[in-house]
Design a protein around this nucleic acid. Structure first.
Lengths: 154, 154
DNA sequence: TATGTAAGTTCATTTTATGAACTCAGCCTC
DNA sequence: GAGGCTGAGTTCATAAAATGAACTTACATA
């Protein structure tokens, strides 16, 4: 199977990877969250080539993660704005960043991540929508996944 | 800049992507969480080519995400087990899967994700370690990121 | 008139991915 | 004891993607 056909599988992880799992794409989103808007800003901040930036921005626009809005008519110039769907990827990015801070402390700089509701510097904690307690790898089960894995591995 | 040099930057997101951001790698981890252990299981479940599986598993072992343990001496046969560092990536995968469920409902099957502490089917919610309230894109700031973005874009 | 800027596109070269076939070492069956 | 089967790979030719540099277009500024 080709990676380019990964978006034909109904797995939510595969679908998400099909949209944001390319090399550079998540860094474009990181910079969009940091406030980048323009083509040259993305180029500067990520360090990727123009062709990649061009292709990946178009891909994100196509999937409703970014909006391409004209900000000057002559000559046409565009900015890329995060949509609400794009902003909704922030938990993914925070989880990834927090994993690196915890498990690769020597390789990364610390992040000054503050919660404006309480004003504190915080760590992101994944919790259960029903009971509010933290969810850990030991306290979660994926019945359907496990059933499928068993079925497929036969 | 080449993607293969992305691991030289101190950004936590870039570091995480350098380890799990390759095509197929996250699907290998997904299947490891679902219980896959053996080379042929990973091949079956992901659909990637042998060369890719071989290379990516070695990469994950090298970065301490998987352990390669021998389970038969003659001929040598290995299993790949998630390490605690690997299991710690579950919040990342849950956030990604939940994003797809919310924003691409037509493309993915639902996930039966249960919290064993309370027994309920739940949605993962990212909360603040300090006040316990949900963290949304609107209630988080990244001062250091924003300062750097400004500095670099000058 | 010359230089600069923004957002791309094009192109030649280098790197990766893909699928099929091959390997190796033992096991299982007839 | 010959032939096939299993598991975990490796090798190879071909196809696809990434890279960096140069080019383009349409204006603005000196």
């Amino acid at each position: 199977m080709r990676w380019s056909q990964i978006d034909t599988t109904p797995c939510p992880l595969a679908q998400t990877m099909a949209i944001i799992g390319d090399s550079w794409t998540l860094l474009l989103l990181r910079d969009a969250v940091r406030g980048a808007r323009k083509f040259e800003e993305f180029k500067q901040l990520t360090g990727a080539s123009r062709a990649i930036i061009s292709e990946r921005l178009a891909h994100l626009v196509e999937h409703g993660i970014l909006d391409r809005v004209i900000y000057q008519a002559h000559p046409p110039r565009y900015e890329y704005h995060l949509t609400s769907r794009g902003r909704a990827l922030q938990p993914v990015m925070m989880s990834m960043a927090h994993w690196a801070e915890t498990h690769l402390p020597a390789l990364v700089h610390p992040v000054d991540r503050r919660h404006t509701v309480c004003g504190h510097r915080f760590k992101p904690v994944l919790t259960c929508s029903e009971c509010g307690e933290a969810v850990t790898p030991e306290t979660v089960t994926f019945d359907r996944f496990q059933a499928e894995a068993l079925a497929r591995s036969k």
